[in-house]
Simulated assay, not measured.
Amino acid sequence: MKKWCNIIVPTFICLLIGSTAKYFQSDSLRTWYPYLHKSILSPPNIAFPIAWGIIYLCMGISIGLIFNLKGLQKKSAVFYFCIQLFFNFTWSISFFYYQNPLLGLI
């Protein structure tokens, strides 16, 4: 049972962080993003929440699997995971809230 909790709880946390990022995007998705010059290969807007939901779900499962590991590298894996989760979250703020594609790219 503990192994499942090690997967379910981090997955829920990752999805919560992803949905929190949506708060910073809401105004820009209506007023700024639709007017950007985008490639004709850009997917339709409905694809983005689905894709990001799947990404955050996979991130939660992956950190849960890492929590179930035993070994010396577990601590560093968790550290690097937290860093990438932070950057995934701040990307939404950089790109949408500050409306700065360059900052989002960095």
Rank of each mutant, 00 (worst) to 15 (best):
K2Q: 06
F81R: 09
K74Q: 13
Q73P: 02
Y56D: 08
Y56H: 10
Y80G: 15
P49I: 06
G71R: 12
L16H: 03
A51T: 02
W32N: 04
L57E: 07
S94E: 14
Y80W: 15
K75G: 10
Q84L: 15
A47W: 02
P44Q: 11
F24C: 01
S19Y: 10
G53Q: 01
F96Q: 07
F87C: 12
G71P: 12
S62Y: 07
L16I: 12
Q25W: 01
F81L: 11
L16K: 10
G18R: 08
F96N: 11
I40M: 07
S42A: 11
L103Y: 05
T31V: 00
T31I: 00
Q25R: 02
P49A: 04
G71M: 13
V78Y: 05
L65D: 01
I83F: 09
K3W: 01
I7K: 01
S39T: 07
L57S: 14
G104H: 09
I13F: 14
K75I: 06
I54Q: 02
L85A: 14
I7G: 00
N88V: 14
Q25H: 01
L65C: 07
F95T: 08
G53S: 02
L85Y: 04
F95E: 05
I63C: 07
F48S: 05
F24G: 00
I13D: 11
G71D: 11
K2P: 00
L65R: 05
Q73N: 13
M1L: 08
I63Y: 09
K38F: 09
Y23L: 12
I66W: 05
F89N: 11
I17W: 03
I46E: 14
L103V: 08
I50N: 04
R30V: 07
L85E: 08
F79S: 09
I40S: 12
L105F: 14
F87L: 15
P101M: 08
C82W: 13
A51P: 00
Y97V: 10
I8E: 02
S94F: 15
L15H: 12
